[in-house]
């Protein structure tokens, strides 16, 4: 009698499966649109990679013949119409060929993955940090609405929200240097920079990771906390909470099992909104702190009009966000039975 009947469990699974399928299919047009936007954006700067290459070569005194120029243009498909250029760019991208970065004189493939990995790591740990701070703070200020603690927390969080992340990074650098005597740039101490991975290197890495984590995470904490606070305030006096209270459930358990459990649901979907912000914050913080992630490379690529590199970074960061949003939607469907039954 007590085991869950087979029918209902596989029912949940099939609901979940069809939901995942629908969401995955919905992602395709989004990604296509995104790739078009990015292609347009990287085409915007006047001139292109060939003209800037030519400029450099001429500056070095190298004579270039018209034929060579023609060859170069053909090599980059620049002699073809825009639509074809887009198609060949995105086609190559999908098959894993991201082109060649003249800035680093290496295939883009070799450049992006490690940087993207660090970006992902910092972003995810910043997300976890945001949650670890925002959830308790949000719960506290909802339950003790209008208390001194509520005001203090809200104000501190608001300051976090109002401080540009690069300023926070600068302040972190200042504090680290003045108070702890450590230089905060980079993700590794000099002695670990170019050695293979070892336990000691991981430890060194973690001791550097927490600063970008805190700096990037702090910006999103305020909004996240406020969303949770508002959600929770909405739920606190809902009939189902009153019913449960009338049942004799003790306050702490009541709070966690009933209103918080529901308030978390829309909160989960805020990951989707938080991710673009976190990735943005990560980019600028990395530039300030000189971290080997996508941010500094992207800005260099942009300034030097290294279109393949910039486009790949933009595309990969966007995919990261879209996938993150998908994951947050799936998490939501898993957490809220009403959604997966829709």
């Amino acid at each position: 009698m007590l085991e869950i009947p087979l029918g209902s469990k596989s029912g949940i699974e099939s609901c979940m499966n069809s939901y995942i399928t629908r969401r995955l299919l919905g992602m395709v047009p989004t990604l296509i649109l995104i790739s078009m936007i990015i292609f347009v954006v990287i085409q915007l700067p006047p001139g292109d990679i060939v003209t800037s290459t030519l400029d450099r070569m001429q500056a070095q005194g190298v004579e270039v013949s018209a034929e060579q120029i023609q060859n170069l243009r053909a090599q980059y498909n620049l002699d073809q119409p825009m639509v074809l250029q887009y198609l060949s760019w995105i086609g190559n991208f999908v098959t894993g060929d991201m082109g060649y970065s003249y800035l680093f004189s290496r295939p883009v493939n070799e450049l992006v993955w490690e940087r993207l990995g660090y970006t992902l790591l910092i972003t995810v740990s910043a997300l976890l940090f945001t949650w670890a701070v925002a959830v308790p703070a949000g719960v506290y200020s909802a339950v003790r609405q209008y208390s001194v603690g509520d005001y203090v927390l809200t104000t501190v969080m608001l300051m976090g929200l109002a401080t540009p992340s690069f300023l926070l990074a600068l302040v972190a650098m200042y504090i680290g240097y003045e108070w702890f005597g450590i230089s905060i740039g980079g993700l590794f101490s000099p002695e670990y920079r170019d050695v293979p991975w070892s336990l000691a290197r991981v430890g060194d890495f973690l001791s550097h990771l927490w600063i970008p984590m805190v700096v990037v995470g702090l910006g999103g904490t305020a909004s996240t906390m406020r969303i949770l606070r508002a959600n929770l305030l909405d739920e606190l006096n809902k009939p189902y909470v009153v019913t449960a209270r009338a049942k004799g459930v003790k306050p702490i358990k009541l709070l966690i099992k009933y209103p918080l459990r529901i308030a978390i649901n829309p909160f989960i979907s805020t990951i989707g909104l938080l991710l673009p912000a976190l990735i943005s914050g990560e980019a600028i913080v990395s530039i300030v702190l000189g971290l080997p992630t996508t941010g500094p490379a992207l800005i260099e690529a942009l300034i030097n009009q290294d279109m393949y590199l910039a486009g790949s970074f933009l595309m990969l960061l966007s995919i990261l966000t879209v996938v993150g949003m998908l994951l947050s939607d799936l998490l939501l469907a898993w957490a809220d039975p009403r959604i997966r039954y829709e």
Binding site: P239, K247, G248
Partner: peptide, 22 residues
């Protein structure tokens, strides 16, 4: 807490929202 739900209990007006959906 002994009183609520054990010695006394309550049925509410709104059955649609009186139970947690999750």
């Amino acid at each position: 807490f002994d009183l609520r739900g054990d010695l006394m209990s309550m049925v509410f007006q709104e059955p649609m929202t009186a139970l947690s959906p999750v």
